[in-house]
């Protein structure tokens, strides 16, 4: 519970409904609160690695091509001014190539992400939500049992 929250109210911070009070939704615990037990989420490390690999490849290709073009424009304007086809020079061709590379790598990135990351992310999320729902149900049952045992 955040210190600015009052007992019985939703904790203040990200993840809480903005229009309080609203109907409470059964859901996984907030990301705030006392430090949780470090149980770890199965598969999350592998997912992180895959995401990092995909991000890195997209960023590297685009950044290298972009930096190369900017450096060439600054350091070797004469080279870029070499005419290749009619008045179309190397610089213009490289600009077009950078645009094409950017578009192609983006399409490839999205497709690979959909193929390699999304299914695993869906599995982890579903498992997490099932576990959270089971925990909530168990807590409700325990609370009900305590109520009956009081009789």
């Amino acid at each position: 519970m955040h210190p600015t929250s009052h007992p019985g109210e939703p904790p203040y911070g990200f993840g809480e409904p903005s229009g309080w009070p609203r109907p409470a939704r059964p859901g996984p615990p907030s990301t705030l609160g006392p430090p949780p037990e470090k149980t770890g989420t199965p598969g999350l490390d592998g997912l992180r690695r895959r995401v990092t690999r995909l991000d890195r490849s997209l960023i590297t290709v685009n950044a290298v091509c972009f930096a190369a073009l900017v450096l060439l424009a600054g350091a070797a304007p004469g080279l870029l001014a070499t005419e290749i086809v009619g008045r179309v020079n190397l610089g213009l061709l490289l600009c077009a190539a950078l645009g094409v590379v950017s578009l192609c790598t983006s399409i490839r990135y999205d497709r690979r992400y959909s193929r390699e990351v999304d299914p695993e992310a869906d599995r982890i999320r579903t498992r997490h939500e099932e576990r959270a729902a089971a925990t909530a149900t168990a807590a409700e049952e325990r609370a009900a049992a305590r109520r009956w045992s009081g009789w």
Partner: peptide
Amino acid sequence: DQDDRIDQEAVELRVLTGAD
């Protein structure tokens, strides 16, 4: 800072999978 109150694992889970 309230960093010790943040469950970094839950944050990462949310960022990577959209859980919660």
